[in-house]
Design a binder for these strands. Structure first.
Length: 963
DNA sequence: CCCCCTTCCTAG
DNA sequence: TGAGCTAGGAAGGGGG
């Protein structure tokens, strides 16, 4: 009796709590969502009652603690109750609640909610609450609500401002803001929490180092920042100081970034809340949980401890990675549309980070399906049950990361839309917040580099969507990005052979044919997991998040700028420097790097390549180039040794006066890079080497993008003085290097020959030093590099990179050569830059022919033979590389026998190829022409000639436009 | 035929 | 309100 009483009481109590907590969420949901949430509320109420009942009645059986929490996580429906595989649950919670709350944070966001008693910050009205999602070392999922962190920004105050001016200004701004809040439905009573007078400096420009008065504007909600900034910028009365238009600082910093920077928290790091400083959500009198995580707690912002990702805090907990793939019942020749075409199968594979294999394979099939060993098959008669069950599966499984191939733009949107069409009300709740509807958002991403890219974004709070297609598009330049091509390239493994056209037929066939489709579907979930594993995608992205200090999801779905901003802010904060908000204006372009005029030709002698390592970062470090060291024209007067004039005419103070922020940031990145390179040198495992290589590349790209950030005119903080100084130094350096080498390494100075810089681009020079062997070239190259380096300030360093022999220089940015980088005996193979062999805007035949010709020329060292056997090359290609049935010789043209020209063979080939992803299905045509003029204006040529300097040759082929 | 523009993709 | 940068070759199109 008593127990039943408790049950009902606690059920009521719980439901009240849930309803209160859900109020705010419901505001943002539509009517439909609200209806659903009411229903869910009812279910939650029952479950909560049951949960509390179990809790109270089994207090002594502590081992059931985990089970209770699991029950609380039960899905809202009951489709699965009989089918739940124990492996689906996360590991149970430890026997006793944790003493300290320690976990790896994977995702950070914030929401506006009601204050929780006992937590810092406002005690009534809406408050911003940060939310950290993560996983403990034991593999339990965590949701931590952090209270008391306040959004803020700064404005520059007029000289002579005093604390007495603050309260009138606060009231002015406060009432202006509240007036703008139409309706003020949340009942905000105070928009401006406070103004603080502080003394800081702008990080833009050196102004003698004096501090200026700034006002720090603390606001009740992050969304008040833009209007507050606008009001202050437009001008408000500052008491007796009159109306002042105040320049804003750091008002364009995202709330989460602000929080991470201020807390010293980097992405994917371990955090800890000490004993007694957090309150686990749970049974009364605790606050009821709102998430699906196993552990949920509240803590004050100040109670969070952040462990730098070093030593024991470098590892990762057993994260759960869910890979998903769906099959649709498409109509003949029509791409599946969720408004019409059913989802017939959903494949899932789940792997723990660090495990070699998935521990769970599951496929949900519409209609019957024959069993599959090693995989669970669940059959459904109705599509809506299938969809609902999948969503419930996701909620039970509680994955940290959702992966797959093109899930971001296809599978997930399709499922969501299909569920909407079929009115599967409980479907779109895929995140970790119980009452939060998963929504689809269109985002356009535009940059000069990548062009315009349209993406869909699924909201699933607390889970990270990691689409392998997006990762590969960003990080690898491939000819084709189909899952099949990519798997073959990286795994030497391919998809199950099921052509698109027969999917519907297989579905409509028998249990056996649906089994075949299920195998195909499962394979498509396994392949992305294997790809991610082989390319160490998770590890390298985690590393990037840690290095640049932003969250994993930021790394995955945003650009380079936000990473630089985060690093800049961290550095600036330590020195009381503030980031101004600059206006975007379409400025004119600035001058970039020098490309040395190539001495075109075929070189049958060793050519030494020397390059400046991390040229632009090292220039910025060597000359202390930064926002904070820029001396504006007509600025403070300084002694002649206190500043430098860059080759572009801009002035910067020396590091003795003030060390720049950017040089410091770069130091951090490059030191991390050299640590990784040391590791790389000791690593034996092929694939771990690839990771480390990828990681050091990522650090290099991060360092290089610091320069790009200063030149990004549509960016957060462009500073062309910095970027044009960097490139101007670079231009000066490469000219100087050429001059130094040619003046010292010559006959007149006692060297065996006159050295010649035959080519160079941005940070590299290719030199003919007059030596006749690779070994000599390496030795002399080292010496030259060391000697030249002495002429430049640290950390600028010219290093020996490799030797080319032979070397074919066709034009700027187009060359090839046989490469020796470590051993003079063993070549590293052909290196080919800019030629059609490495370009993706031609059909594969073109690249193949060019590669074959380059091999003849550079590997077999037989330029004449390359032409004489032109037909043979084609025959080789026909036989070895291409399917004869796919090639048609449409035209055979003249064979010139003029004594001044090499034999010409004009052959027109048509090749049917699977189209490139961005191309249509038209067959591509390649015209291959051999001619004697060089460099040839022909569309395609491989043509040697003999001049006074010896043999010369060029090779290029093009694809004509498809008619 | 030349010149100038755009588009694509690469080098660094 | 979110987007790193410039140089440069190959090729097509349009205008003179």
């Amino acid at each position: 009796m008593g127990l039943y009483g408790l049950y009902g009481l606690y059920g009521l109590y719980g439901s009240l709590w849930v309803s209160m907590v859900s109020m705010v969420s419901m505001v943002s949901m539509g009517l439909y969502g609200s209806l659903w949430s009411l229903w869910s509320l009812w279910v939650s109420m029952c479950l909560y009652g049951l949960y509390v009942f179990l809790w109270v009645s089994m207090v002594s059986m502590v081992s059931l603690y985990g089970l209770c929490v699991s029950l609380w996580s039960l899905p809202t429906g009951s489709l699965f109750v009989g089918d739940v595989n124990p492996k689906w649950w996360r590991p149970p919670l430890p026997r006793t609640p944790p003493d300290t709350l320690c976990f790896l944070q994977l995702d950070i966001d914030h929401y506006v909610g009601s204050p929780v008693p006992g937590m810092p910050g406002a005690t009534h009205g809406p408050v911003p609450i940060l939310r950290l999602f993560g996983v403990t070392a034991e593999g339990n999922s965590v949701c931590l609500h952090l209270h008391g962190f306040t959004p803020y920004f700064y404005v520059l105050a007029p000289q002579g401002v005093g604390v007495q001016h603050l309260e009138p200004l606060r009231q002015e701004l406060d009432s202006a803001l509240l007036r703008e809040l139409r309706g003020n439905r949340e009942g905000l009573s105070r928009a401006v929490l406070g103004l603080e007078l502080c003394y800081k400096q702008s990080l833009l420009g050196y102004h003698g180092g004096q501090l200026s008065p700034f006002v720090r504007v603390l606001l009740a909600l992050p969304r008040l920042v833009p209007p507050a900034r606008r009001l202050l910028e437009q001008g408000l009365p500052w008491g007796d100081m009159g109306v002042h238009r105040a320049a804003p600082y750091e008002s364009n910093v995202d709330f989460e970034i602000r929080f991470m920077v201020d807390s010293g928290l980097v992405g994917c790091s371990w955090v800890e809340v000490p004993s007694g400083q957090f309150h686990l959500r749970g049974p009364p009198p605790g606050v009821p949980p709102v998430s699906r995580c196993q552990l949920e707690a509240d803590a004050a912002w100040g109670g969070l401890r952040c462990h730098p990702p070093e030593g024991q805090w470098m590892g990762l907990p057993p994260l759960r990675i869910l890979s998903v793939d769906i099959e649709c019942e498409g109509r003949k020749g029509i791409f599946p549309e969720p408004e019409q075409d059913a989802v017939i199968q959903v494949g899932c594979a789940v792997q723990r980070q660090g495990d070699p294999e998935p521990f769970l394979r599951l496929v949900l099939v519409l209609s019957s399906c024959a069993p599959i060993p090693g995989a669970a098959v669940i059959c459904f008669q109705r599509e809506r049950d299938l969809l609902q069950s999948w969503a419930e599966f996701v909620r039970i499984l509680d994955p940290d990361i959702i992966t797959g191939y093109n899930i971001q733009n296809f599978d997930l949107p399709y499922l969501l839309q299909r569920a909407r069409v079929l009115k599967v009300d409980s479907f779109p709740f895929l995140g970790r917040i119980r009452l939060r509807r998963s929504e689809l958002r269109d985002s356009t991403f535009q940059s000069r580099q990548l062009g315009r890219r349209e993406n869909k974004v699924l909201s699933a709070e607390g889970r990270v969507v990691l689409d392998m297609l997006q990762v590969l598009l960003r990080e690898h330049k491939l000819r084709s990005y189909t899952l099949n091509a990519v798997s073959f390239h990286f795994l030497q493994e391919q998809k199950e052979d099921v052509p698109h056209g027969i999917i519907t037929d297989l579905q409509r066939g028998s249990a056996q044919s649906r089994r075949r489709l299920a195998l195909y579907c499962l394979k498509d979930t396994i392949l992305p997991l294997r790809l991610a594993q082989r390319l160490r995608v998770l590890l390298s992205h985690v590393e990037l998040a840690r290095v640049t200090g932003v969250a994993l999801s930021t790394i995955l779905c945003r650009g380079q700028q936000v990473r630089v901003v985060a690093q800049l802010l961290r550095q600036a904060m330590r020195e009381d420097l503030l980031m101004p908000v600059v206006k975007v204006e379409g400025g004119e372009d600035y001058e970039g790097a020098t490309v040395i005029e190539p001495l075109k030709g075929y070189y049958d002698v060793p050519i030494v390549t020397l390059d400046f390592c991390s040229l632009y970062p090292s220039i910025m470090m060597a000359h202390n180039l930064c926002y904070s060291t820029l001396l504006p024209p007509g600025g403070v007067q300084l002694g002649p040794t206190d500043y430098i004039r860059t080759p572009s005419g801009d002035l910067f103070v020396t590091s003795g006066v003030r060390r720049g922020l950017l040089p410091r940031v770069l130091e951090g990145l490059l030191e991390a890079r050299s640590r990784v390179k040391q590791e790389l040198a000791q690593e034996q495992d092929v694939f771990r080497r690839q990771v480390l290589h990828g990681r050091q590349m990522a650090l290099k790209v991060s360092a290089n993008s610091v320069y790009g950030f200063t030149g990004a005119q549509a960016g957060k903080l462009p500073c062309l003085e910095v970027s044009q100084s960097v490139t101007a130094f670079g231009r000066q350096m490469i000219e100087r290097t050429k001059q130094l080498i040619e003046e010292r390494y010559c006959l007149r100075q006692g060297y065996p020959a006159d050295a010649k810089v035959v080519y160079g681009d941005t940070d590299s020079v290719m030199c003919r030093l007059g030596v006749t062997s690779v070994a000599e070239a390496m030795t002399l190259g080292q010496e030259v590099a060391t000697w030249v380096s002495q002429h430049f300030p640290a950390p600028i360093r010219l290093q020996f990179e490799k030797v080319y022999w032979p070397y074919l220089l066709i034009s700027k940015k187009r060359y090839a050569g046989l490469c020796y980088s470590s051993s003079p005996e063993v070549s590293d193979g052909l290196d080919c830059k800019g030629l059609e062999a490495v370009r993706r805007d031609n059909c594969p035949l073109v690249a193949n022919v060019v590669t074959a010709c380059l091999q003849r020329l550079l590997l077999h060292r037989d330029p004449a033979g390359a032409v004489l056997h032109a037909q043979e090359v084609i025959s080789d290609l026909l036989c070895d590389r291409l399917d004869l049935s796919q090639l048609v010789i449409t035209k055979e043209l003249t064979r010139s026998d003029s004594e001044y020209s090499a034999p010409q063979a004009h052959v027109r080939l048509a090749q049917r190829t699977p189209s490139m992803p961005w191309s249509t299905t038209c067959p591509l045509t390649a015209a291959i022409t051999w001619s004697s003029s060089w460099p040839s204006p022909c569309c395609a040529s491989l043509s040697p000639s003999w001049g006074r300097a010896g043999p010369r040759a060029s090779c290029s082929v093009r694809t004509p436009q498809t008619p």
